[in-house]
Design a protein around this nucleic acid. Structure first.
Lengths: 154, 154
DNA sequence: CATGCTATTGCTACTATTCGCGATAGTAGG
DNA sequence: CCTACTATCGCGAATAGTAGCAATAGCATG
């Protein structure tokens, strides 16, 4: 999987896409920004880097979409309905636990997912994309708080 | 888990919520509509049932949200970014495989998920909500088509 | 049955994201 | 280095869904 500039350029062209200045700027912004960023933040970063011409927000979305399609970035939606993106470094793969109560997200690495993927592929011929997969539920802290509240009511 | 009208009413009140006419209408619409429906469709159905007063769309969203919170309906987002809802009949639990290429969704029942949930709970104290969980990837048909295209290019 | 507390509703304004389209500009090929 | 082909851009309008707030109406209680 590509990670430095020439590699990325090659990967983009290999998929019949074009490496435009806008894309280059967004790629740079993605490397500069740590972890998960929203389209808004990426757009802001790009605008800060180059104030000659404002890039259209829709371009940011379309580019991120294309990059996600190629597997170069991964997108995950948080509970507030805002999507965040992050550079999918080669070999990197982690999973998100998103709490539906407090909205906080943890990143973990789950062994069982491999077994799950195997089952789905065997039984249904469906290839699940596990990279950066997100699961919703209730985090430890919120579970605890909830139980405490229940007791308080008694 | 409740499924008939008095039961549902009790469940709603038990959670400190109120059973308003709007909620009753939305519940009825949910029972009438088959499988997954969008908030839009539910709103249309409600409007069709009762033309005396148009219900606000935001009310539909809020109600579905509340019902999802109680576990009475389950929400899942499709690839186009539109959320669909369905009545979560007692005992019903299935998982969605959503193809990122053709957008089609399959419903399956996965044994491995129980193991996954156990691992996450043990290792991270996080209680994953497995009901109607969705996974993205590539379906058998699209995998096949993709391979065929690759061959055609050679 | 009357009453008060507060969950819910209906607005309306706003945010995040997508879509369509004419104008631009990467790229492969000569 | 030119040229044609077409992916991509910018822009502006459209869509799904959310937030804030004053008015309304369930429901527990006496």
């Amino acid at each position: 999987m590509p990670h430095d500039e020439p590699d990325v350029a090659r990967a983009i062209r290999a998929s019949g896409r074009r490496l435009t200045i806008q894309r280059a700027m967004i790629l740079r912004a993605l490397h500069q920004l740590p972890g998960h960023s929203t389209a808004e933040q990426i757009h802001a970063r790009v605008s800060a880097d180059d104030r000659s011409a404002e890039m259209a927000v829709s371009t940011v979305y379309r580019t991120l979409d294309a990059l996600a399609d190629m597997g170069l970035v991964s997108a995950s939606a948080n509970s507030a309905g805002v999507t965040t993106y992050e550079w999918a470094a080669p070999g990197t793969s982690h999973h998100h636990l998103i709490c539906d109560h407090c909205g906080r997200a943890e990143e973990v690495d789950l062994a069982s997912l491999a077994a799950l993927r195997a089952e789905v592929l065997r039984e249904h011929g469906f290839a699940v994309d596990l990279r950066h997969m997100a699961m919703r539920g209730t985090c430890a802290r919120c579970t605890e708080r909830h139980e405490t509240e229940q007791e308080a009511k008694r």
